[in-house]
Design a protein around this nucleic acid. Structure first.
Lengths: 136, 136
DNA sequence: CCGTATTTGTGCGTATGTATT
DNA sequence: TAATACATACGCACAAATACG
């Protein structure tokens, strides 16, 4: 499997697919750093811009995280804490605005869960560390 | 309010904040197109690249949607359909992978809600059109 | 129906800044 | 200190899709 220049699918999306499959297949281990952007661009024969777009796409999916000066890492799914949806309660999922995401110290590509109680109060939980439950 | 070059906050993030506030304030109407990328770059005195990064950020938040050849539009929040979280059921929220998102015909910046039933089956719902409920 | 203009998408190049190693 | 690596920012060119006369 490699990059097809004649495909209508953009190079960066093809590359993202390849890396994503590599993550699913265990070729890229959770918690371990990916090759550097320059290395990836050489290995796959694409421009660095395509690599950066691919990584940005994977970040927006919550699959990898990137910090300045370090190579991107495969994200390790954190433990989930169970939160009960109360009787008469409602819950929705949405993406946080950037300032809110930074404020809550959340990674990119992670949604928030809003739990609305019957009394009108609302709780916001990070989507990657939360599991909504309803007791049997 | 405008772009501060001396700020440590990147230009594209400042611009995203300005546009986001403009959306919240009603300056940019839901469903209506934003100014074109070139127009925005001229109005705010920044490069087109900064504009595109700002719009990409807003897309990842589900605030705007962009289609080729058209100006970006302020997303209109769709109606939500209520889905009951069954007794003994669990639910999590996550971002769909790009192919999955395309397959489900979902906009960028929209999470999915996975409802796991006690019998082991799973339903996947689009996060922008779904509201999880538990009857009182 | 057909060109033309507009607009976004992609790709590449260059330079500089900032953080880590 | 130096090297490496990612982040930001600007520019240009062309492709592809849409909108419009």
């Amino acid at each position: 499997m490699s990059i097809d220049r004649r495909s209508h699918t953009p190079v960066y999306r093809q590359l993202a697919n390849l890396i994503r499959e590599g993550i699913y297949a265990g070729q890229y281990v959770a918690g371990a750093p990916l090759p550097s952007e320059v290395t990836l661009s050489q290995e796959y024969g694409v421009g660095r811009d395509a690599v950066r777009q691919a990584l940005a796409l994977l970040r927006s999916e919550g699959l990898v995280s990137t910090e300045r000066g370090e190579r991107s890492r495969v994200r390790v799914p954190p433990e989930r804490v169970s939160v009960e949806l109360p009787p008469g309660g409602r819950a929705v999922a949405r993406m946080p605005a950037d300032p809110e995401r930074v404020e809550r110290d959340m990674d990119e590509g992670v949604p928030v869960i809003e739990v609305h109680h019957p009394d009108g109060t609302t709780e916001v939980h990070p989507g990657d560390k939360t599991e909504l439950i309803r007791p049997a």
